[in-house]
Every structure is written in structure tokens, then in C-alpha cells.
């Protein structure tokens, strides 16, 4: 575990030394400003609208951070050849993958925590209530969803040479799943065979990222989700992240290290 944590630490260090975190803080400031204006309008609809926009911004920026950061990890190791002195130590390729996964996941977790903390404090102070558990569930499930996304991007980065290809393809896939993944079964009902079968198959085969979206619970103050559902969703995320990491390892273990 020492090796995995050491690698994760280097990923986090690289992230803030590459100034990515400064972008994060600018975004955080924007969110704070937007959320800070919540109660000036004195209109429930506008308040909800502003909160909705803030939550969307949190989702988009955390997805971007996760995908862009993860996509360059393995290609950069190969391109800069830093993988050579690393693998000359008693480090396996599986440990490299797990270290990269953990580093990216923790880094996005820190980013999310900062986003939610600012958002929660500002909206809470304006609305005179702070539904901590509701915010915690939304944050936790979003972080779990990002575990799936990060593992998927790591898998992509093994097979696509350029980080830009991995970033674009993964972003399209993630946005596609979030946008229409949950509706595929109802779309399938309106299709003739064999398209109906294919759409159903896709519906049951994709990781349903939209299940982790608790934005409405935060925006409309709908209360807390059943904890059993949260636990099951977390297990679902762990299983999918595990599957993606397994396939990433299968591809990476025999891959030539030269670019």
C-alpha cells in the first residue's frame, strides 16, 4: 500500500504544481459569488435556478478536472519516460495503475469538498438552514460516480495514445450516459427489433452515472435519500471502477513502455 499511496501523493503534488488548482479556485470563487446572490432576488424560482446553475457548474468542473487530470497520467509517464526509473523499483504495473487512480480520485475529492463547502456555507447562511446530510449524500455519490469516470478514463488512456483523444471520447461517453443513459429503456420500447434488443442490451451494460445525481435533492431541499440506496449505489460504483481497472491492467501489463 505504501507504493500506491506514494504514487497518489505525486499525482496530487503534480496537480497543484501544474496550477490546475488555481483554475479550481477561480471556479470556486465564481460558484461562491453566484450562490452568494441567491437571496437578493427574493423569488423562490430564481433562487432555485441560481442554485441549479451552481450545482451544474460543480458537476461540469469536477468532471473536467477528473477527466483531464486522469487522461494524461499514463501517457505522460511513458512520454517523459519517468515510468522507467519507477518500474526499475519493486513496483508492479498494477500498483502504478492503482496509485494513479487513487491520486486522481483523491484530488477530485478535495476539489469537490472545496466546492461543496463554499456552496453549502453560502447558501446555508442565506437560506438560514444547512441540510448537512443532504449535501453530504450529494457530494459522496458524486465522488463515487467520479471513481467510475476516473477508472474509465485510465482504461481509455491505455488504449488511446493521445490524452486529447481519451479526454474527448470519455467526455462524450460520460455526457451521453448522463444525458440519455436513463432513458434508453423507454426509447427501446418504441424501436422495432433488433434495435429494441440492442438498446436494451446497452441499457443493461452501461454504468448508470445518472443514478449518482442528487442535484435536485440539494436544489429543491428534498431531504435525505434512503441510506441503503446510497450504500448500494456506492457498491455499484466500486464494482464498475473495479471492472474498468481490471481491463486497464490487462491492457497495461504487457504494453510496450516506449511511445
Amino acid at each position: 500500500m505504501n507504493t500506491i499511496f506514494a504514487l497518489a501523493g505525486v499525482v496530487i503534488k503534480e496537480l497543484y504544481r501544474r496550477k490546475d488548482f488555481y483554475v479550481l479556485f477561480v471556479l470556486t470563487a465564481l460558484i461562491t459569488l453566484a450562490a452568494g446572490s441567491v437571496n437578493f432576488f427574493h423569488d423562490a424560482k430564481i433562487v432555485r435556478y441560481v442554485k441549479d446553475v451552481c450545482m451544474l457548474l460543480i458537476w461540469v468542473s469536477s468532471l473536467l478536472i477528473a477527466i483531464v487530470t486522469t487522461a494524461r497520467q499514463i501517457p505522460a509517464e511513458r512520454e517523459n519516460r519517468t515510468i522507467f526509473p519507477l518500474l526499475a523499483k519493486p513496483v508492479s504495473r498494477a500498483q502504478v495503475l492503482l496509485g494513479k487512480f487513487l491520486g486522481c480520485w483523491l484530488a477530485t475529492g478535495i476539489a469537490l469538498l472545496v466546492f461543496y463547502a463554499f456552496f453549502g456555507v453560502i447558501t446555508g447562511s442565506r437560506e438560514h438552514q444547512l441540510p448537512v446530510l443532504s449535501y453530504f449524500q450529494a457530494l459522496w455519490l458524486q465522488w463515487m460516480m467520479l471513481a467510475i469516470v476516473i477508472a474509465m478514463v485510465l482504461l481509455g488512456s491505455i488504449y488511446f495514445a493521445a490524452p486529447s483523444s481519451t479526454t474527448t471520447i470519455c467526455f462524450i461517453v460520460v455526457v451521453g450516459i448522463l444525458g440519455i443513459g436513463g432513458h434508453l429503456d423507454s426509447i427501446a420500447l418504441q424501436q422495432p427489433q433488433p434495435f429494441q434488443f440492442i438498446l436494451y442490451l446497452v441499457y443493461f451494460l452501461i454504468p448508470h452515472l445518472e443514478w449518482f445525481d442528487l442535484r435536485d435533492f440539494v436544489v429543491y431541499n428534498l431531504g435525505v435519500v434512503n441510506w441503503l440506496a446510497v450504500t448500494l449505489a456506492s457498491l455499484f460504483a466500486a464494482a464498475w471502477a473495479g471492472i474498468f481497472l481490471l481491463f486497464a491492467w490487462l491492457g497495461f501489463r504487457r504494453k510496450s513502455l516506449n511511445t
Partner: peptide, 25 residues
């Protein structure tokens, strides 16, 4: 192992790099 060219994490300091490898061992 000393490679022919310097393939190290250049955003780290020398001390951090050595500590990173020490942790691996």
C-alpha cells in the same frame, strides 16, 4: 538503476524525489 538520460518527475525537488522512492522501498 541509473538510466542514460534523466527521467524524473521534474516538478518535484531532489529531496521530494528521494523521499518518494524511499517510501516505495
Amino acid at each position: 538503476y541509473l538510466p542514460e538520460l534523466t527521467y524524473y518527475y521534474k516538478f518535484l525537488t531532489a529531496e521530494e524525489l528521494l523521499r518518494f522512492y524511499a517510501k516505495i522501498f
